[in-house]
Design a protein around this nucleic acid. Structure first.
Lengths: 113, 113
DNA sequence: TCCACACTCCTAGAGCGTCTAGAGGTAGAA
DNA sequence: TTCTACCTCTAGACGCTCTAGGAGTGTGGA
């Protein structure tokens, strides 16, 4: 009776950093973009997103500014800071190291064990 | 001041199932095997391993039996059950779906956004 | 005109998996 | 004997994501 998993824990911050690395976006927009690019595979909940944005801004990896959305609503736009860019590279590295290690184990054959 | 990440949350169960899918292993052995196959990239802590083993056995995905290790110590050997085999396939699927989605987002270029 | 709905932000609390930091017992080597 | 590697186990802290709410505002349709 396990719930459907929609995210790999620990990747959300990285995904957000990546999303805003390509130009400022407001929170709700980040959510839609990631969903869209991943062809609806990655489903981010608002209750995960906003705490994450707070976390990232608090650490100086993104910066925010109130503005107006494409739909004429007030929205908080986030952009990547220099520190955030570094962090993104770092997390990207870690991700590729770890994910390929996991895949490697999954593909291990008896002789290797 | 974030700690070094040694595991992608949610992958431990799958890694354990995979490890025992190739033949019975005791807990400590599972730990060493995964570490070895992943070339020390994946570092599993004992405090993560044993609760995970309990979890998996409780759900009927692995079964245990006391025996003797290669070093003459008593050790609890785990093997994959039929249900565990199903579960492994399922988690493997989910992993490849999600991890490639994440990688896809990381490789997204501005035009796609 | 008024209502519904999509858009946008936010929070509290629960749930769960992993980590830290311990304890304890045994075989074999020094 | 003492030390180390082997092997199992637990309690509690910690951090991230989810559920489940609340709230306000433009726009379009009835």
């Amino acid at each position: 009776m396990s719930k459907p998993v929609e995210l790999l824990q620990g990747t959300l911050d990285m995904l957000i950093l990546k999303a805003v690395s390509l130009g400022p976006l407001h929170g709700y927009g980040i959510l839609l973009r990631i969903q869209q690019i991943s062809k609806e595979v990655l489903q981010i909940q608002q209750g995960s997103l906003y705490p994450a944005l707070y976390r990232l801004e608090h650490q100086g990896w993104i910066a925010s500014e109130w503005g107006e959305s494409e739909n004429n609503r007030k929205a908080k736009f986030y952009r990547l800071t220099a520190a955030g860019r570094k962090q993104l590279l770092l997390e990207r590295d870690q991700w590729s190291r770890l994910s390929s290690a996991v895949t490697g184990v999954l593909n291990a054959i008896p002789e290797e064990l």
